[in-house]
């Protein structure tokens, strides 16, 4: 597959987005490759046709409107996957939460190469939020936010398209763990029946809430994570949402 320029590279050449070395290499290839030259020509023809089309009204309207609350970006859906790292230790909280300022949360599906969103009709739904215990009470953690060794994380979930919720994760070393499953008994936000304490493995902690129609096989979930924590074996009617935290010492 490497004999030719890939499709995205051809687009980026047209857009002037290749760096100097990449562009030189691409143009050198094009000078000798009839196929790729034809593909580039086809892209340029499509470009010309596209420019003759009107901009869709929905896009014009979006440009004129403020962005939605940015929490909406935080979700994904797919299948059976995962949870917080081996770097995270599952703990039962013994202290009730205190009232405290809480913001909003969550993960960054697009950054993970999967923009989410499996179950139809739930694309804009945030279904898991994370909060860090502090002296003044739980504080929401933004995706990409920092946590430290020993921090205790609580989760809240809102039952999405499936009745079973599993919390799992992958830590900075690539270790995966499945922490537990339960069935929320209502559609409103509910706390997870356990919390997580950050261990001393540094790096990104990806905390997943996985939603399934039936109680998932934990071993299968973990095996999938270990294979590639970016995606997992999907089962129909399963979805997940991820929160990615940056753990520092």
């Amino acid at each position: 597959m490497s004999a030719h320029l890939n499709t995205l590279t051809l687009h980026q050449l047209r857009y002037g987005e290749l760096d100097d070395a990449e562009e030189v290499a691409a143009r050198a290839h094009l000078a000798t490759c009839e196929l790729c030259s034809e593909r580039l020509g086809a892209q340029q023809s499509e470009r010309a046709a596209f420019e003759a089309l009107p901009v869709p009204e929905a896009i014009r309207n979006a440009s004129a409107a403020p962005a939605p609350a940015n929490n909406n970006r935080n979700w994904i859906v797919a299948v059976a996957l995962i949870a917080v790292a081996a770097a995270v230790v599952l703990v039962a909280f013994t202290q009730p939460w205190q009232s405290a300022p809480v913001g909003t949360v969550i993960g960054d599906p697009i950054a993970r190469g999967i923009d989410g969103i499996r179950p139809k009709g739930h694309e804009d739904t945030i279904v898991v939020q994370a909060f860090k215990d502090t002296a003044s009470g739980p504080v929401a953690i933004e995706s990409g936010g920092q946590v430290r060794v020993g921090d205790r994380i609580q989760l809240k979930v809102r039952r999405p398209p499936a009745p079973w919720v599993t919390i799992a994760g992958v830590d900075g070393s690539g270790e995966a763990a499945v922490y537990g499953s339960w069935q929320p008994d209502a559609d409103d936000w509910q706390p997870a029946p356990f919390g997580l304490t950050m261990d001393d493995t540094p790096g990104k902690e990806s905390i997943y809430a996985i939603f399934t129609e039936t109680e998932p096989n934990r071993a299968a979930l973990r095996a999938t994570l270990l294979d590639d924590h970016r995606s997992g074996e999907a089962a129909d009617n399963t979805s997940w949402q991820v929160i990615i935290l940056d753990k520092v010492q």
Binding site: P66, A67, P68, A69, N70, N71, N72, A92, F93, T94, Q95, P96, W97, Q98, S99, P101, V102, G103, T104, I126, Q129, F131, P138, A140, Q154, K156, D188, W189, P191, P193, F194, G195
Partner: peptide
């Protein structure tokens, strides 16, 4: 654990921020 389960975050705070960004 039972205590933890009964603790709640005020709904208004736990839900999405009403703040909209430009």
């Amino acid at each position: 654990m039972a205590h933890a389960l009964t603790a709640t975050i005020p709904k208004a705070q736990a839900s999405h921020s009403a703040t909209r960004t430009r």
